[in-house]
Computed example of a mutant assay.
Amino acid sequence: MAKPSIVLVHGAWADASSWNTVASELRSLGFTVLAPPNPLRGVASDAAYLSSFVAQRTTGPVVLVGHSYGGVVISNAATAGGDVKGLVYVNAFIPAEGESIFQILGGSGSALDVPDPTTVLDVVGYPGGPEGDAEAFLKEDSVYRYFAQDLPEEDAWLVVAGQRPITLSANATGSEKAAWRTLPSWAVIGTEDRVIPPATQRSMAERAGSKITDVAASHVSMVSHPEATIEVILTAAAEAGN
């Protein structure tokens, strides 16, 4: 059987470069690897973009890998385009139908679940957005303390400088699909994650029936400890290729 294509989907406050080490290693092992931009504009539109990308840019079996909000996107896109055989969630949301990120994080102990979000986020308007919507950037201190606390300072600063914002509406809108109900899935849980607490990740992964791997890492475990994510993707790819 041909090796599946691996499609790596970044989350909020990141871009495709967050997958650089993972992508390079997978490519060296002979996989076709793609890391498309995630628009971060809304669940339905982001999923439609990804499913269109997968349908047009891949052939044969595909493993979708999502980090953080990227987990919401792959859950909604997997059954709408391409021959997706498996899902890998890396420090990711694994929502059921109707669940939003705000709902999942509410009461979870997340560093982002605070009475005044502007203490951890910079919220700004953007042109062409729906009435009342806004973009959210992580404050510099939030990156260092909560998002990427196990990266060297210089690497964390690059996250600060290059982060792509997510809209508030993307966080408030419920998921429309849950592809994990019909596809095998795997979950990498960062046990030092301060954005999506490990207990919250584990609860979602167990509900989805995902095979779970723990790694002592922050929310960006695929950057700080890429070997764990690579190993899990290889396991998913082996099953997808059968």
Rank of each mutant, 00 (worst) to 15 (best):
V72P: 00
E25N: 14
L151D: 04
V88A: 10
G109T: 05
G60T: 12
L234W: 01
G209E: 05
E140I: 03
D46L: 07
E176W: 02
A156N: 11
Y69E: 07
A199Y: 02
S108E: 10
S175N: 12
V9M: 00
A111C: 13
Y49C: 07
T235L: 03
S210D: 08
L183M: 00
I74Y: 01
W157T: 10
G132P: 10
P184W: 00
G70M: 06
G174C: 05
V22N: 08
Q149H: 15
A156T: 11
V63Y: 10
D155M: 11
V9S: 00
T191H: 09
A12K: 10
G190T: 04
K177C: 00
I212N: 05
D116F: 08
Q201H: 09
P4S: 03
V220T: 15
V123H: 00
S17W: 05
K177S: 09
A92I: 10
A48G: 14
E192M: 09
P184T: 00
T59N: 06
D150W: 11
H67T: 12
S221K: 01
A48T: 13
S224E: 01
P184A: 01
W157I: 00
A208D: 06
Y146C: 08
G66S: 05
G71L: 10
P197N: 09
V143G: 03
P61L: 04
I233Q: 01
D155N: 11
G132D: 07
S224A: 02
K85W: 13
E131M: 11
D15V: 07
V72D: 08
P37K: 12
V223D: 08
G190M: 00
T182Q: 06
A96H: 11
E131D: 15
P198I: 07
E227V: 07
D193I: 09
I166F: 03
R57M: 14
F137A: 04
N20W: 04
F53L: 10
I196L: 13
A240K: 03
A78K: 02
L168R: 14
E97S: 12
I104C: 08
V62H: 10
L50I: 10
L26H: 10
I94N: 13
Y146A: 14
S24R: 15
V72Q: 09
K177A: 15
